[in-house]
């Protein structure tokens, strides 16, 4: 009967086994061989990627940061504007944060990446995580990490060159709700340069449907370099400005947050990034030299 005597689970271990086998070694013992964490990120792979990517970051894009010190010491949700047919902003931000601050960062993205053979695995080893609210909550609230997300999603990266630096709708403000529930600030980042690194001239929706892609772009890079244009970015000068973190004065772990408040905050963050972009663009002398 429950409660009458303490349960001795050790007793139960004497189940029939091959004789002479090593028994349980306890949960503390872990005979793992690799360093892939629960999110699929591997520090070893990340190091390799950083080594290979560093010339792109320093020589091609000549990245300049402004206000990096505004990123809090604890967990935070970084949000930025999204651009380029094959987005160049995500690797730049992730590389920059890891190099400059020496902290790991996880990038949330559409589950589309996870479906791709080879690339999906690499994406995950390099710190990509499927944008699921549970994943974001666990990373931010329980593991106190830095997480990057692009609220525009593919609406941002699929827009054509004619619409450059005009921010799209920030989804339904899901990122604000996640930050509120996790009790972390949102840190907006304005990125200049990504739009010109791989400008989309037009998209072919019929081909996208056929191939099961979110969009099928025809980029300036493709016209210049042919199929290699899928991998080659134009040497646009990157400038990133970290804006003041937004703290929400609400208790974490609520089942629900006010819809209107969430939308209002999301729109406010979108406007601040938009204004910062206009400010940075008005000061820019040249697309290539900054």
């Amino acid at each position: 009967m429950p409660g009458e005597k303490p349960v001795d689970l050790a007793d139960r271990r004497a189940l029939v086994h091959l004789p002479g086998l090593g028994g349980p070694t306890g949960p503390a013992y872990d005979p793992r061989l690799g360093d892939v964490d629960e999110w699929g990120r591997s520090e070893r792979v990340r190091q390799q990627v950083r080594r290979l990517y560093d010339p792109v970051y320093r020589k091609l894009f000549r990245v300049e940061w402004e206000g990096l010190e505004k990123i809090p010491k604890g967990p935070a949700l970084l949000v930025a504007n999204h651009a380029a047919a094959i987005p160049s902003d995500a690797p730049v931000i992730m590389h920059g944060i890891e190099e400059e601050l020496g902290r790991p960062i996880y990038g949330l993205a559409d589950h589309f990446f996870r479906q791709l053979p080879v690339l999906g695995t690499l994406w995950s080893r390099a710190g990509g995580v499927v944008a699921h609210p549970d994943n974001a909550y666990r990373l931010l609230r329980e593991q106190r990490q830095l997480v990057l997300v692009f609220p525009e999603g593919t609406k941002g990266s699929s827009k054509t060159y004619a619409e450059r630096y005009r921010l799209r709708r920030f989804g339904r403000g899901g990122f604000v709700e996640i930050a509120m529930r996790s009790g972390v600030p949102v840190v907006p980042i304005a990125v200049v340069g990504a739009e010109e690194s791989m400008p989309t001239l037009t998209t072919i929706p019929a081909l996208a449907r056929l191939l099961g892609l979110p969009y099928f772009p025809i980029t300036a890079n493709m016209l210049l370099f042919g199929p290699a244009g899928l991998l080659m970015y134009l040497p646009a000068k990157f400038k990133l400005r970290v804006l003041d973190p937004v703290y929400f004065d609400v208790p974490p772990d609520q089942p629900r947050y006010s819809r209107s408040r969430v939308m209002e905050e999301a729109e406010g963050i979108r406007q601040r990034i938009q204004e910062a972009l206009y400010d940075m663009l008005s000061r820019r002398q040249s697309v290539w030299r900054g």
Partner: peptide
């Protein structure tokens, strides 16, 4: 409830048993 084995622990114990079976055959 407390577990005796982690995921990796389960794999290792499984593999020890396979190695033993490969050498001495089915002993049950």
């Amino acid at each position: 409830f407390r577990y005796d084995y982690t995921s990796a622990g389960a794999v290792e114990h499984f593999w020890q048993a396979v190695r033993l079976r490969e050498t001495v055959g089915e002993v049950e």
